Amino acid sequence: MRNTPDGNPMHWTPYLTALAFILGWGFGGWSTCGASCRFNVNLFEAIGTWLGGVGVAIAAGIFTLHRYREDSRNESRAAISTAHLCTLRYTLKPEKTPYQDRVHIQFTNKTSEIIGQPSLHIAGGKVLRRDTIVAPGRGWGTTVYLSDLGIANIQPHNSNTKEALNQAKRLIVFEFDVRNRRFLRHLERVYSSSEAPATLLASDDNKGRQPQA
């Protein structure tokens, strides 16, 4: 079936369905009584009423389907908008040495939504932390040694910490749910789980998934 100008073949569905019912009824009636058939006003009115009911039912079904799709699109747009607000903060910290040898990764839920199944992992590598939810207004995160990320410790009095933080940001992936939709954030990009590059997934998630060309 060719699409209508708006690309939606469902535009013709009510008409084709009604035509099929009329042709089917006509053939059925003819095959039953043959040439002896006569026009019956009452029967004709009953069939018209029946076809009208069928048309209303079809129209109601199409409206319901359209409404469902529109609600789903609105829900998806709202989830994506919230996902873009879910950002991370990176802070270098010293432990018991004069070196800055750890990076603290912090997510603060500044949205009005519950953020589900938060997870931090190294791109293509191990998971650093998983949790269940982050309620609105609450913070969540973890602290990682720079050496575990393959980054050299920051020397005392070295003010050039920006590169170390940038290296950490390039390695870390934040994964989370918004309204039962899964998202990944890497640097400034937000991906739906199904569209994220395979190189950004955790090592466990990469198992069985074909690399993207």
Rank of each mutant, 00 (worst) to 15 (best):
G53P: 03
R38A: 11
N109S: 11
T108S: 04
D177Y: 14
V41W: 14
T13M: 04
W30P: 00
H186A: 13
T82P: 02
C37A: 10
E70Q: 14
A46T: 07
Y145H: 12
H157A: 11
P197D: 10
F176C: 01
T64N: 06
N158M: 00
N166S: 12
V144D: 08
S192K: 15
I154G: 02
G150E: 01
I115N: 06
R69P: 00
T91E: 08
A213C: 01
K93C: 00
E113N: 14
Q155D: 13
A79V: 06
L85R: 15
A198V: 14
N166C: 00
Y68Q: 11
E163D: 04
I105Q: 04
L201K: 13
Q155E: 14
T87C: 06
R73H: 11
G125C: 04
W140D: 05
S192D: 08
S147H: 09
A198Q: 13
N109Y: 07
T32M: 06
R2E: 03
L23Q: 08
D101Y: 01
P94S: 10
L16P: 01
D71G: 01
D101Q: 13
N206T: 11
H104T: 07
P156K: 07
E95Y: 07
K96C: 01
R209Y: 11
G141T: 10
V41K: 15
L149C: 10
G141I: 05
L128N: 06
